[in-house]
């Protein structure tokens, strides 16, 4: 009996001697018109700080809230806040990289379609043509826009937010965390057990996921027609507007997922690639050599026909679920 007790006491001591593993902290935040879920291993105070950051950014980046920073910029020409201005310039870079397939100045057209309010309508050809006069990232000089032009940072806001939160977490010494900002996922570090985070990619044709990618210090961002759409006279109109035509993009893709360390870039590129279609998007990916100087990212495309294309960096990291055969997955290579 005494020996057993001594053994037990020793066991307890051995356990307490282990360095304390940080506890899992998680929270759900309703912001930027979506649900955000944050989880990290470490100090719970960092989550509260993250929530404050999100609330500040939501206000500064909102184009729909009459008290929002971008709303003020659009309607009264008020100067953008520091974060909004930084994001504006980042978005312009992405527009240049993609030839304007992602363009923050497309906002007047999006408004006309009613995607911001839910009062959906199909604008006429002339109306769209008139609105397109004001659209185009090349028409901006610095922060000056032509009369009547308006911007919306929505296509990059969640990605940018995930970058800022990830920076905050790193500054606070967090080495493991995961955030899902309404479908924009960012994985910080590895799971506490040392394995990479497993991020599912939504199947555009059903409510499940079509496969998973291993993620470590990268954002995983998907753009798809299924996210927001409406039906009029048997035609489905989705929310990703092609800045060239002013109409929902028709490029043969059902969804695009971009994976890379720069969440803002991934967010903007997923929209741009959806507009561009498989071939032109793949060209841009190929032109960005993986040399460290060019943007670093990988892409997963799902075509309207249900074929999956991945860029070579995802080989080994992407695994399709049982609904898809590995044989259905085609790999795009640079060589």
């Amino acid at each position: 009996m005494r020996r057993a007790a001594a053994l037990c006491a020793l066991l307890c001591l051995a356990l307490t001697a282990c360095s304390p593993a940080p506890a899992k902290q998680s929270s759900t935040i309703f912001a930027m018109d979506t649900v955000m879920e944050l989880q990290l291993y470490g100090d719970g105070a960092v989550l509260a700080e993250s929530t404050r950051l999100i609330t500040e950014l939501e206000k500064e980046l909102s184009a729909t809230d009459p008290e929002g920073g971008v709303y003020a910029f659009n309607h009264t020409g008020t100067e953008l806040g520091k974060s909004a201005a930084e994001l504006f310039l980042r978005a312009m870079d992405i527009s240049r990289l993609t030839g304007g397939a992602m363009d923050i100045t497309v906002y007047p057209v999006v408004l006309a379609w009613g995607f911001t309010t839910g009062q959906y309508r199909v604008p006429g050809d002339e109306e769209i043509a008139a609105l397109l006069e004001k659209v185009g990232y090349t028409k901006a000089s610095g922060f000056d826009l032509p009369q009547g032009a308006m911007i919306d940072l929505g296509a990059v806001a969640k990605g940018y937010t995930s970058d800022l939160i990830a920076d905050l977490w790193r500054q606070r010494g967090i080495s493991s965390g995961l955030m899902n900002l309404g479908g924009n996922v960012y994985a910080l570090g590895k799971k506490p057990d040392g394995s990479p985070w497993l991020v599912g990619v939504r199947d555009p044709f059903s409510d499940t996921f079509l496969g998973t990618v291993e993620a470590e210090d990268v954002a995983v961002v998907t753009s798809g027609a299924y996210e927001r759409y409406f039906e009029r006279d048997g035609v489905i109109y989705h929310h990703i507007i092609d800045p060239k035509t002013g109409r929902p993009a028709k490029s043969g893709l059902a969804s695009v997922t971009v994976i890379g360390p720069d969440g803002t870039l991934c967010d903007g590129l997923s929209t741009a690639f959806f507009v561009l279609g498989l071939d032109r998007a793949a060209e841009i990916w190929k032109s960005c050599e993986a040399d460290g100087a060019s943007p670093d990212f990988d892409v997963l495309f799902v075509t309207d026909g249900g074929e999956i294309y991945i860029t070579e960096g995802l080989e080994g990291s992407f695994s399709p679920t049982n609904d898809y055969d590995t044989g259905d997955v085609r790999v795009i290579r640079r060589g």
């Binding site: 009996m1 007790a5 001594a6 037990c8 006491a9 066991l11 307890c12």
Partner: peptide, 9 residues
């Protein structure tokens, strides 16, 4: 059992 033995001790 573990805590009980510790308490016994």
């Amino acid at each position: 059992l573990l805590t009980g033995l510790a308490a016994q001790y």
